[in-house]
Amino acid sequence: MESMEKKIREIAREIFINQKIDFFLGYEEGSVPLKSRPFFIQAKEKTPDGLINRLVWNSFCSNNLAVFLPKFFEHDPRKKPPRIGISVKGCDLRSIVALIKEKQVPRENIVLIGVPCLGMIDKTKVEANFQGLEIIGSEETPEGVLNITTKDGKKHHLKREEFLQEACIECRFPMTEGTDYLIEGKARDPGDGGYARIKAFEDKPPEERWEYFKREISKCIRCNACRQACPTCWCKECFAEQTDLRWIGASIDLSDTMIFHLIRIFHQAGRCVECDACYRACPMGVDLRMFTKKIVQDVDELFSYVPGFSTEDTPPMSTFREEDSDNFISEP
């Protein structure tokens, strides 16, 4: 990944020099272990070499950077929309395609640097491995080993592959296609999409599923981190906050919280790219992955549609075809 990091910096420098972009959006080292964080570089008069050298690429670049784009392109007659260079994984790219399709991001203002994705580390999995013992340092080797330092001063060596996020293990599209630049390298082998996990859950009795749903949602504190981290949650006014016709209450009453998540996730039907940004963002560890994946699977199976690849096709929720499934009427 070091060579990828080098390449990203080179391309960033090149497009700054050629004045192709006003901003570059990548990652820098985070301030806590196991975390890289979004990093904006703004073009000033000179090539921002010092900042470019802070760009990193490693197993902690989880954040889906597409989430930052729509704000830059909100209509403002006083400002010229910026040109933005952005390094993207497979899931980030699919989010951007969805945003271009939904007219939130103009393709011509974006310079895409595709990075073949080897999967990202699941911070919670690593933390769980140490059962509450604080992790104070983390680094990875090119051989796929995670070196972890814990509070007691001990060093631990973990196999990277064993601590990847579910989204990455299940990911069917780790390779980016159609980007302006493509970093050389091999992505991980595509996963199976994780539908089997949903099937297994669906086979459980309703009470058990309900209990699971209740347990997960009961952790929610309505901080909206899931919504704000989701690239395709760009509504200017969220249904959850409409007051003149109130759909749900503002509190953490379980029924309100459940409706919030259900509607938010349903609104992602045909748009969710399974990046799990919502799950990672949640400070309370609400596991939304079962529900988001279910929506993805339904759209796939009912409408043979997988979002995030074409900016031309009509999204299944915006159209009606005669052959569309209507079993929600006949077999509700």
Binding site: R222, A229, G249
Partner: peptide
């Protein structure tokens, strides 16, 4: 620039105390 605009920091903060009043 990195801020997503969620309320996680404020809800977890021990001194943040802003509130809303609504009727149900």
């Amino acid at each position: 620039r990195n801020c997503l605009g969620c309320g996680a920091c404020t809800y977890l903060c021990p001194t943040c105390h802003c509130f809303d009043i609504t009727d149900e």
